[in-house]
Amino acid sequence: MTNEEFLSKMQDVLQTEEELKLDTVLDDLAEWDSLSVMATMAFLDKDFGVKTTMKDYKNVKTIGDIAQKAGL
């Protein structure tokens, strides 16, 4: 998956209208809440086979950090 595809999928996962970049700060997004964390967990598991826990997201600052977890 390219970064562009990842960013477009993340937009859908988070159900946000904001255009996402790798350096987008998650706390700046109104949609970054517990629903989004769950959706992100499912997305990483389903599309990348990467298992994460709620705690993993405490240190996540940007969309790029999530891409890194996905192995991109």
Partner: peptide
């Protein structure tokens, strides 16, 4: 523990 149950389910 919602997230743990979620991961268990996905597994």
């Amino acid at each position: 523990k919602g997230a743990d149950v979620f991961n268990f389910t996905m597994d």
